[in-house]
Amino acid sequence: MHFSTPDNQSSSTWGQDHGPSKSALLDVAARIKPWIHRTPVATSRYLNELSGAALYFKCEQLQRMGAFKMRGAVSAIAALTDQERARGVVTHSSGNFGQAVALASKIMGIKAYVVMPLGTPKVKRDAVLSYGAEVTDCAPNLWARETATQEIINKTGATALHPSNAMEVILGNATATMELLEEVPDLNGVMAPVGGGGLLAGTALATAHFGHNCHCWGAEPAAVDDAFRSLKMGSIQTNDQTNTIADGLKTQLGSINFPIIQNGVASIFCVDESEIIASMRLLWERTKMVVEPSSAVALAAVLKYPAQFSGKKIGLILSGGNVDLSQLPF
């Protein structure tokens, strides 16, 4: 079975004395509230029957700009000084965080630069441009992303906003699960997709501080299973290739979010490409929700490992819905 728990634990050992406090999370939630949507929680009788569990979908595809990333982007920009805002912000992103930074910058009145790898879905690139950000294209690898970002910093003095490995971003991301647990307080656990780790780390913080015996789980494409291997090995692992339909999950964990994930995530479950596509189609057809492949990874994990979730109340973070309709896999 392709799922992992840390070698030294069988479930979450996150304690209330580790990492950001509950009050810090509440402060961030209040700070970003004017700039974001409180997204709905959806259910499906059919998917409950199919999974054997009671599933509660946090619909972040209905967030502003179409993904949870808006939460982290607003949180990060809100924390900048006036001098930093005057110089603008820069990020590298395959799409959703770039859109989030572009839109957050527009509504908060600052300049945004976004480095985007070649091959980014057209719908995401077009959205970044439509929000007024300046886009720089680069090769589809981490070195190229970071090099282009540094060149912009050297030229403009812009502040770099990391898509996932920054505490203000992680805290902003946590607010999705905070809202979910406020609406469904007796969840047995929350499943979030994992790529760069910012959403999963935020989910871990929220379940620890606001859940009641509530686990945090990650879901990841088997084709890019670095988070799965990182949790198992106890150190950050990398991928030799990034060939997955879940384009938002191709990046790797970072030094800030990985310790949170180690302490707060019970298991990471891996799913195959065909399982991601099947779950995406289920969500489109049965719930009428337009979600991108990265969102479908969470449902795919629950369906693949029924023995782990049967009879439980499970929250699933639908991370985004920015889909290139000309490239649908079904």
Rank of each mutant, 00 (worst) to 15 (best):
P163F: 07
A176T: 11
D240V: 10
L205C: 09
G172V: 04
P185Q: 03
A160G: 00
G202K: 08
A201Y: 10
V169T: 15
T242S: 12
G189F: 03
V190G: 03
E183W: 03
K155Q: 15
H162S: 09
E182I: 11
R229I: 06
G198F: 05
D186M: 00
G198C: 13
V190K: 00
T242L: 07
T242C: 11
E182T: 15
E168N: 15
G189N: 02
H209Q: 12
V184W: 00
L205Q: 04
D186T: 04
M167W: 05
D186L: 03
A227G: 10
L231A: 03
T242P: 01
G218Y: 02
T156S: 07
P221M: 12
A223D: 10
T175D: 01
N188P: 05
L161A: 03
V224E: 00
H209D: 12
V190C: 03
N188R: 05
A208E: 14
M233L: 13
N173S: 13
A160E: 04
M233K: 13
K155H: 14
D240C: 07
T242K: 06
N154K: 15
Q237V: 14
N239D: 10
A219F: 07
L199W: 05
P163S: 06
G157P: 11
G197T: 09
W217M: 03
T238E: 15
